[in-house]
């Protein structure tokens, strides 16, 4: 096979891996949308908040230290201890559950039965609030995140493929880990929503709020549960992206990558998020590889949206989304 073809195969493989990372962000959107009909604009910021909280806990940073010092005139920044990664992840998860409770208690409790656009606007407000809270709690500076994930080129694959084809394929170890984690997440979430009691309740709420309430399902509990799971997914996405680039504000912009994935895969389908992510990942990389040079490069951002828009024309509900029929 000519080298050009091998390179194209390498681009496709890496596109698939990038797609998995996009899907990780999209997954959080889908979970909340399915259960509550809320398009959670703050999902990207939740990833930033979760990752910043994780680093802060690991480093023993005093939350809100700038604020405390400014008000009390003290000079405290660190507790002086370091928390092991696993324990810090569990503690961050607890913070995300607390956040889920707070979001429902102080925001969405008052917005039940409101128009979707109002709920969406509330999540925009939540995104700004979380951005500020994250900076205030942990500072806006770059934080390095090391939870022991492997990074760098997978040497085995490089050597094996070089031995076989005379062309060493590149895959980042972190991308492999992200793919495995995403697979586990999707399988777990699918099984959970299909077979567990809470999962069935979750689907009941998704189908019809009022009918679910009438059979004794607690809307409040389900929403807290869903926001907690979305918080967990945000934490996982934050760890994967944060390990690559450090934890900084740009993590919150990942949401921009998830949007075309959702448009393509459908807002209500967990497998749709994965398939959508893979199509966007491969599509944008292949386009950049084949035609990007002719267009001055940096085509990936807009190409993802163009691809999603094309899908929208022919299949507005996305590949796996439910077709919404509204009768007047």
């Amino acid at each position: 096979m000519p080298e050009q073809l091998f390179f194209a195969a390498e681009v496709i493989m890496n596109g698939l891996m990038a797609g998995v990372l996009y899907a990780l962000v999209a997954l959080g959107f889908v979970l909340i949308y399915k259960a509550s009909g809320i398009f959670n604009y703050s999902q990207g910021v939740m990833a930033l908040f979760a990752a910043a909280t994780l680093v802060g806990i690991m480093d023993g940073q005093v939350p809100f230290s700038h604020l405390i010092n400014a008000i009390l005139g003290t000079n405290v920044h660190h507790f002086g201890w370091h928390v092991p990664a696993v324990l810090a992840i569990l503690m961050t998860m607890a913070v995300m559950v607390l956040l889920a409770w707070a979001v429902n208690r102080f925001v969405f409790k008052y917005l039940v039965n409101q128009e979707a656009i109002i709920l969406f606007m509330a999540t925009i407000g939540l995104a700004y609030f979380l951005e500020g809270t994250s900076d205030l709690m942990w500072g806006g500076q770059l934080k390095t995140l090391d939870v022991g994930l492997p990074q760098g080129m997978n040497a085995t694959l490089d050597e094996v493929t070089f031995g076989m084809f005379g062309y060493g394929f590149f895959i980042d170890n972190l991308d492999i880990v992200a793919s495995i984690v995403a697979l586990i997440l999707v399988v777990t979430l699918t099984v959970y929503s299909q077979y567990s009691k809470q999962g069935r309740a979750l689907r009941a709420v998704a189908d019809d709020h009022q009918a679910a309430l009438s059979v004794g399902i607690s809307l409040n509990f389900i929403w807290i549960l869903v926001w907690s799971i979305a918080g967990f997914v945000a934490l996982v996405a934050g760890i994967m992206w944060g390990a690559k680039s450090g934890v900084q504000f740009s993590l919150s912009l990942m949401a921009l990558k998830a949007l075309p994935v959702l448009m393509l895969g459908g807002f209500t389908s967990i497998p749709g998020a994965i398939v959508g992510g893979l199509i966007i990942g491969v599509g944008e990389k292949l386009f950049e590889f084949t035609l990007g040079g002719m267009m001055g490069g940096a085509t990936e951002n807009w190409f993802a949206y163009v691809l999603a828009l094309i899908f929208l024309v022919f299949r507005p509900q996305g590949l796996f989304g439910e077709k919404i029929i509204e009768r007047v």
């Binding site: 390179f7 890496n14 990038a18 740009s250 944008e284 590889f289 990936e300 951002n301």
Partner: peptide, 13 residues
């Protein structure tokens, strides 16, 4: 590389 530059796999490949 497009803003913000979080994804650069194509360029580095």
């Amino acid at each position: 590389v497009d803003h913000p530059g979080q994804e650069q796999k194509s360029q580095w490949l």
